[in-house]
Amino acid sequence: MSNIIDDLKMQYKLGGMAQRLILWNVACFLISLVFFYQFSIGVFDFPNWVALSSEPSVFITKPWTLLTYAFFHDGFGHIFFNMIVLNFSSALFLTFFSEKQLLGLYVLSSIFAGIAFVSGYYFLNFSASIVGASAAIMAILVATTTYQPLMNIRLLIIGNVKLWHITLVILVIDLMQIRVENTGGHIAHLAGAFFGFVFIKLLENGTDLSKIVSIVIQSVVNLFAKSSSTPFKKVHKNYKKPVEKPVSKIITKDKSQQQIDEILDKISQSGYDCLTKEEKEFLFKAGK
């Protein structure tokens, strides 16, 4: 069990933002199985401080649900399909854009789609709650399609298709089902798709909306860093500037660094799973 946990920690450290988003979603799903799943009737019962409610009185008092709903899922099939599409669309997105932009798009599109869901149900006079990362995933997929619609994608059985073909089929399915079932979910999906399109168009004109998320995260990090730092007194003292010694231009690595480099080279060539148990443990200890 400890080896599995160590492997997950290492995968989290070495993996990119796409892998972290998937792990966050899976972790939230496991938490929901423990606390929100009603085994007696076989359904999830999400509280209104996790799921996004269309009721204005609930939504206004719990605005964080505009983001939390995008990390929980209503069943194994729901999260399984979403994580497959998230992995697929994120891999394509990261071909052209950065990991900070991926996180920014995921967060902002979730908020935008959540507002669209609440607004739509308010005017339709409906009441419901939603969970799921589908809106954010649609934003990532449509954003990539908007930027590179003619990218070739090879599918099993079908063969090579254009990326815009895949995206169009998914959008048409959402439009066809919007009045049949899960109306709120499909409203959020389409809103996420629209946000992904706008995100790329603004980016092409020099406006990167993801910087908003990066600034907020950095502000929070700086806030906690300042609170944890201890105050100190500034001491002035006279000193003589040390004489600089000539430094050799030949750089040598110690044995530990050399071993780390060799392991990282091995990972880049054959993947993380090819490492031995001793190499994994050494890399994990070195990363602490």
Score class of each variant (00 low, 15 high):
residue 89 S to L: 04
residue 14 L to H: 06
residue 235 V to F: 12
residue 176 M to Q: 08
residue 67 L to G: 03
residue 194 F to H: 00
residue 138 M to A: 13
residue 172 V to Y: 00
residue 176 M to V: 13
residue 109 S to F: 10
residue 109 S to G: 12
residue 102 L to A: 02
residue 141 L to Y: 09
residue 149 P to F: 02
residue 171 L to R: 02
residue 86 L to Y: 12
residue 243 V to L: 11
residue 146 T to E: 15
residue 30 L to K: 01
residue 219 S to H: 08
residue 155 L to W: 10
residue 108 L to Y: 04
residue 8 L to T: 12
residue 99 E to S: 11
residue 116 A to L: 14
residue 266 K to V: 05
residue 254 D to H: 01
residue 10 M to N: 14
residue 203 L to M: 14
residue 98 S to K: 05
residue 54 S to R: 03
residue 238 N to C: 00
residue 232 F to D: 05
residue 55 E to C: 03
residue 10 M to A: 08
residue 8 L to G: 05
residue 88 F to K: 05
residue 68 T to L: 13
residue 109 S to N: 09
residue 157 I to W: 12
residue 121 Y to V: 00
residue 30 L to E: 06
residue 120 G to A: 15
residue 287 G to Y: 10
residue 144 T to D: 01
residue 78 H to Q: 02
residue 238 N to Y: 09
residue 80 F to L: 14
residue 2 S to D: 14
residue 207 T to D: 07
residue 87 N to I: 02
residue 159 G to C: 08
residue 115 I to P: 08
residue 77 G to P: 02
residue 216 V to M: 09
residue 39 F to N: 06
residue 222 N to S: 13
residue 100 K to S: 08
residue 186 H to S: 08
residue 247 V to M: 08
residue 116 A to G: 03
residue 160 N to E: 15
residue 188 A to R: 01
residue 122 Y to S: 11
residue 85 V to E: 09
residue 230 T to I: 10
residue 45 D to V: 10
residue 153 I to V: 15
residue 222 N to I: 06
residue 181 E to C: 06
residue 79 I to R: 07
residue 35 F to W: 13
residue 102 L to Q: 04
residue 74 D to P: 00
residue 139 A to F: 05
residue 55 E to I: 09
residue 62 K to G: 00
residue 237 K to H: 10
residue 86 L to H: 10
residue 25 N to E: 09
residue 22 I to A: 12
residue 36 F to T: 03
residue 151 M to S: 07
residue 56 P to Y: 05
residue 7 D to I: 07
residue 37 Y to W: 12
residue 210 S to W: 02
residue 212 I to M: 14
residue 58 V to N: 04
residue 173 I to H: 02
residue 114 G to E: 07
residue 98 S to A: 03
residue 245 K to S: 13
residue 105 L to V: 06
residue 125 N to W: 05
residue 75 G to V: 09
residue 213 V to G: 04
residue 78 H to F: 13
residue 231 P to T: 11
residue 68 T to R: 01
residue 246 P to T: 12
residue 46 F to T: 07
residue 117 F to A: 05
residue 100 K to D: 13
residue 260 I to E: 09
residue 255 K to F: 02
residue 237 K to Q: 13
residue 37 Y to K: 08
residue 264 L to E: 11
residue 233 K to R: 14
residue 153 I to E: 11
residue 146 T to N: 09
residue 282 F to V: 03
residue 110 S to W: 03
residue 125 N to C: 03
residue 179 R to N: 11
residue 79 I to G: 01
residue 109 S to L: 09
residue 136 A to Q: 06
residue 249 K to V: 04
residue 250 I to N: 11
residue 131 V to W: 01
residue 194 F to K: 00
residue 24 W to C: 12
residue 119 S to V: 15
residue 1 M to D: 10
residue 214 S to I: 10
residue 268 S to I: 05
residue 211 K to W: 12
residue 54 S to D: 03
residue 274 C to S: 15
residue 46 F to V: 01
residue 27 A to L: 12
residue 111 I to D: 02
residue 227 S to D: 08
residue 116 A to P: 03
residue 103 L to D: 01
residue 15 G to P: 02
residue 170 I to T: 09
residue 109 S to E: 13
residue 235 V to L: 13
residue 158 I to D: 02
residue 261 D to A: 12
residue 221 V to K: 14
residue 180 V to P: 00
residue 40 S to K: 10
